[in-house]
Design a protein around this nucleic acid. Structure first.
Lengths: 218, 218, 218, 218
DNA sequence: TATGAATGAGGATTCATTCAT
DNA sequence: GATGAATGAATCCTCATTCAT
């Protein structure tokens, strides 16, 4: 009987374990939409289907929510990214291509994108967020990619460029693409296709913009 | 008329006409530092050297300040950028290089950088900011650069790439460079040099990352 | 019946009948330490070794706890005190000395002292406390002592003083002694000895402060 | 004109200087009546004739109000009391009598009595209050009186008693008198007369309770 | 009986905005 | 114009009390 009731109408829930995640889910959407300062705790509660007071049963303060939010999202990222980075032994172009595509796909998911957006926006106000994101994500992912580039240089696949700076050439377009679309509602005429962006970018990245047989200046 | 007023009582008080600008200057620094929501009108007043009430003599509300802030900064940008874009008739690489360098130099100025930072951060809260910035800056500058690229393609200088997407490859690194440094305090080992970033990026952009005599894939 | 219940599942849980008292014990310590308003029901529950909800099985409200607390402590006091007061038939100095010593010894016990402290502190907020304490303790004890004094006067042992006012001279020092130590952490150089206080006080009380062979006033 | 307006209807007051004191006056009454925890800031504001926000213009927090309250009351007390204590050179009984009478008169003023009552009640919650009161009042007044007693002993006016403990015999009755009346509404049949209390107490204090020609115990 | 998750009224504090001077 | 005192709506957080289990 209790089992059937549960499956029918778990209205009166008593699930202390799911609650924190439900709160974080609700908070993420709201923070992403309205920013931290403009989101009221009661809004979070309502969206999570609870009352104001219940939120405080699981988080000691509003700021603790945003920190938990980033912490939750940030931890699993590292492994995923690192796994791929080291996987490619031969031509590093394959690894870099794969990494970029994975990055782009990840950020195409609103739930995932919301986190770095939040971190960037609130970093000035809650420096812990930036610290955490840097420590857990950037400090793991960026060096891995940089190493990929450096390996390509050392093995003679790439020109003698600065790997650290080149990293920025690598990932920059993805960010701009996102920001133009997200903040300014500017998308390419053909729509916000990450695939096409990546392919175009990889073309330029590996082979350059200049035509193969250079047309001299007039 | 204002002149006569000045000569009557020039005392130590600044001309009333400069007041709005001084308020905007003060607000810009504070908003950039702490975000809009966390900046109090009294802080702005204090930094501008006047009292809270006086701020309301010039601006009807706090939000009006941030809007005026962006409007003031945004208007002159258009001409400057457009001037350069059309100037180069021959090899578009020169024009692109010049544009990138100018962009980078502009953004190296904290006062200038503060504006887009502010717009990005507060866009969700005050959509007018994003609209304004898009209308006044992006919708003028981006198409101009895109056209430069397109012209290069059409004239046979560049490969057959998508100009709109390539635009993102062009400016992306600058954005990432800034964001890594500003939000996450991550700079290249040699320091945050925009010049080196640009040179490295142009190298890749025009000639590609791959070594001139390609090492074949395994 | 309760016995059979006990024998069925005596486990490790304390008898339900003692619960209310355990709650009161816990509450007394906490109220004495932190005051009524600053003590949370959950603290009481935790210290009593049960859960918040269970407290409400025994007491309908937080205020009911403090009232029960005082009521419990207050009832037995009357008999004890009255017993001694009437016991001394001859020189009332013996009775008074005994009463004072007993009073002092009683109040030296933190558990006993806590009650009047609590009553005094919370009297303004919960007038029932003061009423109860007055009715159950003061209205029984004070007249008994006053009668002792009056009897001493009538029998020619004491001067013709006002018994009611003299009562205050009798017990005042004990109160001050306690308050200085408890609230302001002020104790005599030799330590907070009630015995020495009482002996000194009795000396003055019975024989006066002035030296036996008076030094005449100028 | 402004002058006459002021005297007629100073409704729209702009007197930043009086405000803090008005707030403290209002707070004192309320704290004395209801205790600190039960007094709402808005009540204080209303009684002081201002709005909630205005209170925070002058005090950073509710606790700052109670501290300022005690500080304001406490500072002037010291001088007054000390002045009298040292004044009497000959028979110290005069000095002690005067001191007691002054103490009693002071505490008969509700405004003055309210402060130590408040301190005693809230000491556990805001230890700064007790500290402040001790430092500014007790540590100055009590030693002065104790010295008076000691001087009487040394000069042969008094018996060889413990001056520090005798101090408690001296002031205790006044406190009990107050507390019985204030907390428990117990006054002598003839009314709450401090004068009669003091006279009765001084009689006992100086000459003892025992009849001049002692009636031997049976 | 016992639990502790859930509730929501209540209260301290902040701050954009107003307005008498 | 300029000031800064005053306001009160808004918001975070607390905690006594309830109630499904």
């Amino acid at each position: 009987m209790p089992g059937s009731e549960k499956s029918v109408a778990p209205k009166f829930r008593r699930r202390a374990d799911d609650r924190p995640d439900e709160v974080l889910d609700a908070a993420l959407e709201l923070f992403a939409d309205q920013g931290f300062a403009n989101t009221k705790v009661e809004q979070i509660a309502k969206r999570a289907g609870l009352s104001k007071g219940t939120v405080y049963l699981y988080f000691p303060s509003k700021q603790a929510i945003i920190e938990a939010l980033v912490r939750r999202a940030v931890t699993p990222v590292a492994e995923r990214a690192l796994a791929h980075a080291g996987a490619f032994a031969g031509d590093p172009r394959n690894g870099i291509s794969a990494a970029l595509r994975q990055l782009a796909h990840g950020l195409a998911d609103v739930r995932i994108l919301a986190i770095p957006k939040l971190v960037v926006r609130e970093a000035a106000l809650v420096p812990e967020l930036a610290q955490m994101y840097r420590h857990e994500v950037l400090d793991r992912v960026l060096p891995a990619i940089e190493m990929l580039i450096q390996r390509g240089i050392d093995a003679g696949y790439f020109r003698q460029v600065d790997a650290n700076l080149t990293l920025r050439s690598l990932i920059g377009p993805i960010l701009v693409h996102l920001m133009l679309a997200d903040v300014f509602d500017i998308s390419p005429p053909e729509g916000l296709s990450f695939d096409r962006l990546i392919e175009n970018h990889l073309t330029i990245l590996f082979d350059g913009l200049s035509a193969p047989e250079q047309v001299g200046a007039p």
